[in-house]
Amino acid sequence: MRISEAKQCIIELYKNTDCVTALVSERGVGKTSAFQQCAQELDIGYMGLYAAAMEGPDFMGLPDKDREKGITRYLAPQFLPTCTAVAEGIFPEKGLLVLEEINRVPTDTVSVLYPLLLERKINGHQLAEGWKIGVTMNPDTLNYAVNSLDDAMLDRFTAIEITANLDDYITYSLKNGPCDDVLDYLTACPDMLLRVKKAADSTATSKSPTPRGWSRVQQLLNNCSLPEKLMQELISGILGPETAASFFGYLKNREYTIPSAEQLVTDYNAVRPQMAKLTEGGRLDMLSLVLRKVVSLLDGSEIQCKNLDVMLSDLPEEVQLLFFKLLADAKPELFLGIAQQTSIFSTLSNQILQLLS
């Protein structure tokens, strides 16, 4: 399942059930980010715990004497959004409590978590009604040092297996500091977004690309000024030497360059030759990336719409239709206002309606 699809499921499960949602995937695909984004979209709280670094007593809480009744009670852990903690304003009324790497948790700690995952309470402390639980885990393969969870534990989860998807990754990147060179390379070589190593190759020094790694590379390229040799060494340390060599080799030998999205919507004539080369070369993959970048910047201003109108008139019809679909999906509130300012909208309106229906 794609991350965008998994997020839809997480939101529906949060709203309508008490299920414990488990996201399962290879490393660096975005399990934690998916839960965080869902919390943001729902406008609720988020508490992430690296469960593998915690022990049973951390969850059980410290014992405290109740001298009046002659019994021992347990104090609730600081990180647990209990009914009392919510009532006292320590946590918001609603949220997601996510236990990271649940299948790296020591066996004796796993047994402590059973009542929390099944009954939403632990040692007399009830999880607040508006808080739901999620967990993340890597698959139980030779590539990962994880513990096998028994059927009793797995039965408590609604498991969702997610995979890396380039469209989802580009959408995420466009909102979080994109680097044109990286997105250009991945568009041309989508199989390099994630490479799953064979068990025999899984060592500390045999790194391979992941979406998380590519995000670090984008941050590095956007913010650091280093000689190419040093930059390649650093990227080798993130993605592995083979991927780094492939990436830099592509940048040196590529025939096309991706024009600046900002220039496309503010000074289109300055980058018109680059767009013409992509169109004449039939690079629909690159044109799709360009349109997604453009859509991410659109705010409906007059200058943008004027440049957009000229750009769309240069594109083949199938790419024009793709633009309107991307705009409707990403910014439905701006769709009609922007579309009506383009000269091709009236000509393509019937096809656009069919495409969007």
Score class of each variant (00 low, 15 high):
L62E: 04
T32A: 06
M153Y: 08
Y46C: 03
M153F: 15
P273Y: 09
S343N: 11
T347V: 13
G130I: 11
L308G: 04
P241C: 04
K325S: 09
F335K: 05
Q351R: 14
A34G: 07
Q40W: 00
A22M: 08
R2T: 13
A128G: 14
S148I: 13
L42N: 12
L308F: 10
Y114I: 12
L353H: 12
P209V: 04
E317Y: 00
Q304W: 12
D140C: 09
K31V: 10
L297G: 11
P241H: 05
L193P: 10
Y256Q: 11
F345E: 04
R73Y: 04
K306N: 05
I162F: 05
Q232M: 07
A87C: 01
D191Q: 15
L186F: 08
P259L: 05
I160V: 13
R216C: 00
L287Q: 15
L42H: 04
T107D: 00
V290F: 01
G177A: 00
R212C: 04
L127V: 10
L154R: 15
D201R: 12
E333K: 07
T84Y: 12
A6K: 04
C224V: 15
G30L: 09
E5D: 08
V196L: 13
N350E: 13
S236R: 11
A188C: 14
N350F: 13
R283I: 05
I102T: 03
Q274C: 03
V146S: 04
A145C: 11
Q351S: 15
I170C: 01
S225M: 00
N307S: 08
P178H: 03
R283W: 00
E5L: 09
